[in-house]
């Protein structure tokens, strides 16, 4: 069983919803990264998604775009992201790490080399935003021999036929994008998300996480009642953007703590 499966199995037994924070590696710099990750875990994060900086993050809104730009100003590379995971694993061998990014830096490194390094450093899942199933074959094949899960997005506009196709490829969990548009947009329609999750679960048997638009305890709580996981991205990146550098781990930890409490209180 992969680390991601273990987390979901344990949470399911406790009837709890997974909390998955996201931030971009190297924002505002590399030194903040590990303390922030550890603070996330201590405050109740179950899985961490790490963003790989890219110069042209087409599917992201302004907040996550700016995070990429800050990281690139520090010359943070895919290899640095992988190194962060390696160091994290020296003290934490249980919290799953999912890398999220765009195809080009990965293809530049080489899909096979990337996957091999992911395996060596202890990455648990990979989400390539601009690899829909039809373009993800090489990556899926490369991942297959390892316990690294290919994570896929499902949108409100994804047809049943495509959900079925994604169900056949995805492992770990699928990530339902609760909004039309890019990351960081507002307005989340809880009833609509619930109806969509019911639809998705007719095809998908692995856990379904919900992201894009979860900004506070209130929405996390209402989504957490029926989702297997909530993913929080832009809100965390905003916190990182606003905080003084020394205080980032603490402030992010506080936010995670609030979200964790809201989720657990929903029970």
């Amino acid at each position: 069983m992969s680390r991601i499966d273990q987390v979901f199995t344990a949470l399911k037994a406790q009837q709890r919803c997974a909390l998955i924070p996201f931030f971009t590696v190297g924002d505002p710099d590399l030194s903040c990264c590990l303390p922030t990750m550890h603070a996330m875990v201590e405050s109740g994060a179950d899985i961490i998604e790490l963003g790989i900086p890219f110069s042209d993050p087409m599917a992201d809104g302004p907040v996550i775009q700016r995070a990429s730009e800050r990281a690139l100003k520090n010359n943070v590379r895919l290899l640095d992201v992988l190194n962060v995971v390696k160091t994290f694993r020296q003290t934490n061998t249980t919290t799953p790490i999912v890398l999220m990014g765009y195809a080009n830096p990965i293809e530049r490194m080489g899909v096979d080399a990337f996957v091999k390094t992911c395996h060596e450093v202890g990455v648990d899942g990979v989400l390539v935003v601009d690899y829909p199933p039809s373009e993800a074959r090489a990556l899926s094949q490369a991942l297959a021999p390892f316990a690294i899960d290919p994570i896929f997005l499902i949108a409100p506009t994804t047809t049943d036929e495509r959900v079925e196709e994604i169900a056949g490829l995805a492992r770990g969990y699928v990530y339902y994008v609760s909004l039309r548009g890019v990351t960081g947009a507002s307005h989340i329609d809880v009833a609509d998300v619930q109806a969509q999750l019911n639809r998705i679960r007719q095809h998908v048997t692995i856990p379904v996480g919900v992201g894009f638009g979860i900004r506070d305890g209130e929405t996390a709580k209402s989504i957490g009642r029926f989702a297997d996981a909530v993913v929080v991205g832009s809100r965390i990146v905003e916190t990182i953007e606003k905080a003084e550098k020394e205080k980032i781990p603490h402030e992010v930890g506080q936010l995670i703590h609030e979200l964790r409490q809201a989720l657990d209180n929903a029970l």
């Binding site: 087409m58 599917a59 601009d130 829909p132 373009e135 506009t157 994804t158 495509r162």
Partner: peptide, 19 residues
């Protein structure tokens, strides 16, 4: 499916696929 040999294709987020 829009490929010119190894080039072309549809490298977009799932959010854009329906459009």
């Amino acid at each position: 499916d829009g490929h010119f040999g190894p080039y072309g294709g549809t490298f977009v987020s799932e959010t854009l696929i329906a459009a």
